[in-house]
Design a protein around this nucleic acid. Sequence first.
RNA 1: GGCUGAGUGGCAGAGUGGUUAUGCAGCGGACUGCAACUCCGUUAACAUCGGUUCGAUUCCGUUCUCAGCCUCCA
Length: 443
Amino acid sequence: MLRIYNSLSKKKEEFIPNDPNHIKFYACGPTVYNKIHIGNARAFISADLLAKILKGIYSKVTYVCNITDIDDKIIDAAKEENLSIKDISTKYFNQYQEDTALLGISKPDIQPFATDYIDDMIAYIEKLIASDNAYEKDSNVLFRVSSFPNYGCLSDRKLDEHESGSRVKVEDFKESPNDFTLWKPSLDDDPGWDSPWGRGRPGWHLECSVMSESTLDIPFDIHSGGNDLKFPHHDNEIAQTCAYHGNEDPTSFAKYWVHNGFLNLEDEKMSKSLGNVIYIDQLLKKYKGNEVRLALLSTHYRQPIPWSEELLDQSHNIYVKLQNAFKKYGEIEEKFHADSKIAEILMDDLNTPLAIRTMQDLVSEPNENIKNEIATFKYIFEGSNQDLSLSDEQVNEINELVKERDDARNSGDYDRADKIRDKLSKMNVSIKDVNGKTEWEIL
RNA sequence: GGCUGAGUGGCAGAGUGGUUAUGCAGCGGACUGCAACUCCGUUAACAUCGGUUCGAUUCCGUUCUCAGCCUCCA
């Protein structure tokens, strides 16, 4: 039985699917305007974790993760890099695919692109206007928040309490400061599509309402995203979709809402302005994909992760230790065994830290079910497609040096032996003398 | 100000109404030409103040602190 914390009820709940024969899960994906960083990766890995567990339990699961390929940030990036919008979004989409695969994140079943749904979005807006839930002003179309009484139900925000902390400048085309954009005009050199309100482009929140419903139909089971998306993004999605269908109940859209926590660097939020952004492609030059994955899963998904070198080194140690322990059992196929201890722990609101701890316990005191435990562990915590193999040439070079060192040791020339060991360690090769034999591995 | 979450040993992080994980680091030892690896042993914690209780780190309440959101953001 899967239990999951539902942001809508603010409680850990038993997961009861709308249809156990077909589980539907939608996660908010990337805006492809830059390389993904470690914080983005955490969100994608959390969604991947949940998708993997769902797929382990249920026979049919459709996991959708959208790609935002039209957005002001993309327009800015295109100007900066002097590329077309399409080139920018393609470039960073490809990088996203590559980086996530290296972290063992499986491809979603469906990856809808926002720009493929512009016509649907326009039709959606027309209906919202017709039902008086939206209005046009100066070529902008805005959602009229006051028309949806349950607005803010996810984040528990009340509209009239909003003023005190508000720092946002209210554009004069808005009836109310909380109204949000469904459609906005594009300047001549900005990308745009023809619409009843002139040439323009969709607001950000709209795409998820349109694409989730188009790909999964509503109600679907789970909607996930980063904690920061709760408000306004997800509350806006709920308002749009519910208003569109004339239904006030947010569960008529998605039943469970799942949000992951952030990642802190030295007690600071990672941000471009602080210059402390860690990109995945850089990180993977030093650590293996599975190690980074383990590090990201070593904290419960709802808690903030204090990210540090130390955490990565620790994850490296645990990873190596477990790999060595697993070797004893030969090849084990990655597979989710729902009756294993590891699975049971994960099904309690995705308790990955406890699962990691338990796996360590289990290998130190194996039980007869250990192979299923390992299979389940590998299914969740491994799966990076990173190619760690060396060329034949490199392997030969290392073997030769190792042999030279052994010869030196056998003849008592320890100075020379140690020099060779230093040389190997500079090549990131670590030496172990085990039972008279010399083993080596790449760090 | 509002909403949400959290405060456990040097660090990370589970868990529990009484026997107080685990990993890393530290310390001691075995092994080693020296290391590394491995193994054995070991130090050390439960934010604050009250309450309930025979007994609370664990339950209830107070206080304090921290983080995120309330503005694009994973």
